[in-house]
Design a protein around this nucleic acid. Structure first.
Lengths: 193, 193
DNA sequence: GTCGTTTCTTAACTTAAGTGAACGTTTTGA
DNA sequence: TCAAAACGTTCACTTAAGTTAAGAAACGAC
C-alpha cells in the first residue's frame, strides 16, 4: 500500500532505500470507515492527510446544510487551512468511502525536513504546483455554468460521478440536488436529439 | 518604493542590510501604463510579478468575451500558471491602472536562493499560505450567490469597487454587467426599505 | 472642444436555478 | 427483518441571471 506513497513522492524527488526506511519506520498509515469525521468545525488540528485508497471530502455547514467544496481521492494530499493559519477550522472533513490514508503533522514534517533537506524542496514544489492547479480549477469554476461544470467533471474525474452521492456532487457544483437531477435529464435529452 | 517590497518580505523572514543591497542591486522595478498587457494567451513567459502600487488583473477570452478571474493590488504576488508548468499561458494579464511592480524570473530566484538559503524557506511559506488563502476564497465563491459575493467584496476589498470598471467586476463575480447593475439596484432598494 | 468609443444603466423577455412538496427506492440500524 | 431515515427524481411555482436592445454618461483621441 505504501508503494502509492512512494510513487507519489517519486514525482518530485528520488528517495534512497535509507530514506524509504526512515519513512516506513514512522507509523503514519490509518484506515478509516466511511462516514467517519476526520476534522470538525472549531477544531485546531495539526494533521495533514494523503489519500492512498478511498475518498474524503471537505464541507461547510451553512444554514444547517452541508456544502461540499472538495473531494480528495487516490494520490491527493490535503493540508487543512487550520493547520496553516493555526486557527479553528471553518469546515469539516469526512470519509465518502472506507479510506486508507497517511496522517502527518508539522512536527513530523519538520523532523523529516531536518534529516533530509530534500523534503523542504519537495514541499515547495508541491505547494507551487498545487497552487497553480488550484488557480486553474478556480478559473474553470468561475468561467463555467453549472451544466458546463458537470460536463467538465464527466471528462476530468468521471470516477467521482460513480462513487459520490448526488447531493454531495450537487453542492460541489454549486447547485441543489433537484437542479442536478434536472440538469442531468436535460443533458440526456440533448444527447438523444 | 522598494520599502513596500521589504515590508512584505519582513512578514516572512528578516533581511540583513547585505541582503537588502543584494536585492537592490538587481534591476527588477518596472513602471507600466494602464491597459498594458503583461502576458498574452499562448506566451511562455518566465516572469513573476509583485505589485508595489496599482492594480493588475488576469483574464481569459472565452467566446470573444473577457472573463476576469483575479485582481492583484498592493503587496500581492503573482506567479502565472505558465511559469510553473512551463506551458503556453491560457490567460492574459493586464494593468487596470498605471502600476509599479517588480518583475522576477525563476533564474533570478534560483540565484538568490543559492546565495541566501532563507529565500527557499520564504517561498515555501508564501506558497503554503497562498494555497490556504486561495482555498478559502474558492470555498467562499462556491458557497455564495452572486449577491453574497458582491457584499463580501464590499467588506473584504472595498477599494476594488472604486478602482475597477463594473464590467470587469461583474465577470469577476461570475455574472454579466447588466446583472451586476440590477443586483446593485436591488441592494440599494433593500437598504432603503 | 467635438466626435467616437467605452461604460453603465434600464427594460422586456427567455432560460435556468431555488423552493416546497410528493413519491418511489435504497440504505441503515435496531 | 422490518420500520425509519436518507436519497433521488419529478412537478409546479418563484426568483434571479442571461439576452437583446436602447439610451445616457464618462472618457479619450484628435
Amino acid at each position: 500500500m505504501q508503494d502509492i506513497l512512494f510513487d507519489f513522492i517519486a514525482k518530485y524527488i528520488t528517495l534512497t532505500e535509507e530514506e524509504k526506511n526512515a519513512i516506513n519506520s514512522v507509523d503514519i498509515f490509518r484506515s478509516v470507515k466511511k462516514g467517519s469525521v476526520l476534522l470538525s468545525k472549531g477544531q485546531r488540528s495539526k494533521n495533514s492527510y494523503f489519500v492512498l485508497k478511498g475518498c474524503i471530502r471537505t464541507y461547510y455547514i451553512i444554514d444547517g446544510e452541508e456544502r461540499t467544496t472538495a473531494f480528495y481521492t487516490e494520490m491527493d494530499a490535503l493540508t487543512p487551512h487550520c493547520v496553516i493559519n493555526k486557527a479553528p477550522s471553518d469546515y469539516y472533513i469526512s470519509c465518502v468511502e472506507d479510506t486508507i490514508l497517511t496522517v502527518s503533522n508539522l512536527d513530523m514534517e519538520a523532523e523529516i525536513n531536518a534529516k533530509f533537506p530534500k523534503f523542504e524542496i519537495m514541499c515547495r514544489k508541491m505547494s507551487e504546483e498545487l497552487l497553480a492547479k488550484h488557480q486553474i480549477d478556480f478559473d474553470g469554476f468561475k468561467t463555467s455554468s453549472p451544466e458546463q461544470r458537470y460536463l467538465n467533471l464527466m471528462r476530468s474525474r468521471p470516477d467521482l460521478l460513480q462513487r459520490v452521492p448526488q447531493h454531495q456532487l450537487a453542492s460541489y457544483l454549486g447547485i441543489k440536488p433537484q437542479s442536478l437531477s434536472r440538469l442531468r435529464a436535460r443533458i440526456l435529452e440533448k444527447d438523444k436529439g
